[in-house]
Simulated assay, not measured.
Amino acid sequence: MSHQTNPVTFVLIARIPTEGVDSFRAYEEAVLPLLPEFNGCIERRLRNPDGTIEMHIVSFASDADFQNYRNDPRRAAQARLLEKSAAKLELLPMTDV
């Protein structure tokens, strides 16, 4: 169980159709404020000029914190916005080198 005390870092790449940008931003406005409750932090957030690609570097104190964030019912309640955005998400676990 020692792995649960190790910090975890992810890169999220979101590819959003132009018509889905507003829904994607509404989703983020709803779910990103939850991160601190789960020992999560956005280390870096990048967006291309037209808003169709976003990249986040997100870290959590442990994998358990990350899983608890993913399973939070308030986050799940916003899933319709993410679906409406039609964003294609790629979540990559990363480590410092």
Rank of each mutant, 00 (worst) to 15 (best):
R44D: 06
P73G: 13
R74V: 14
R47Q: 13
D72K: 14
Y27R: 04
D65M: 10
Q67H: 13
S85L: 01
D63K: 06
Q4R: 15
E43Y: 02
I16K: 01
F60Q: 02
T9I: 09
E54A: 05
L81N: 03
F60L: 14
H56W: 09
A86P: 04
M94C: 13
A87G: 04
M94W: 09
M55G: 04
T52K: 04
L81A: 05
A79T: 15
I57R: 07
M1C: 11
R75G: 11
D72H: 09
V8G: 00
T52R: 07
N48T: 08
R70N: 14
A30Q: 03
V8M: 11
R44N: 11
A26N: 13
R70C: 10
A30C: 01
A14M: 03
I53W: 03
I13A: 04
A61W: 08
A61C: 09
V8S: 03
S85Y: 00
N39F: 03
R45I: 06
V21D: 02
R70D: 12
L12T: 13
A14W: 04
R70H: 10
V97D: 12
L82D: 03
L46G: 02
V8W: 03
M1Y: 14
R45V: 08
F60M: 09
L81E: 01
S23P: 04
S59Y: 06
H56E: 07
S59W: 00
L89W: 11
A79V: 15
L92W: 12
Q67V: 12
A61Y: 02
V11I: 13
S85C: 01
V31S: 04
S23W: 06
E54W: 03
A77L: 13
G20S: 06
F10L: 12
G51H: 02
K84P: 05
S59D: 10
F60G: 00
T9K: 11
F60W: 06
Y27E: 07
A64H: 09
K88N: 14
T5C: 10
R47T: 15
E83C: 00
F24S: 00
L46F: 06
N71L: 10
Y27W: 11
L35C: 02
P7I: 08
E43K: 02
F66Q: 06
M94E: 07
A64Y: 07
D72W: 10
E83Q: 08
E37Y: 07
I13H: 04
A77I: 12
A26C: 11
S2R: 07
L12S: 12
P73Q: 14
E37P: 04
A26P: 00
E37R: 10
R15D: 06
V58N: 00
Y27M: 08
A30R: 03
G20D: 05
L35D: 01
S59H: 09
F10G: 01
R47K: 14
N6H: 14
L46Y: 05
R75D: 11
R75S: 13
F60K: 01
I16C: 05
R45H: 13
V58W: 02
N71W: 02
R47N: 09
L82M: 10
E83V: 03
Q78S: 15
E29M: 10
E29S: 13
T18E: 09
Q4G: 15
I13Y: 08
I57M: 09
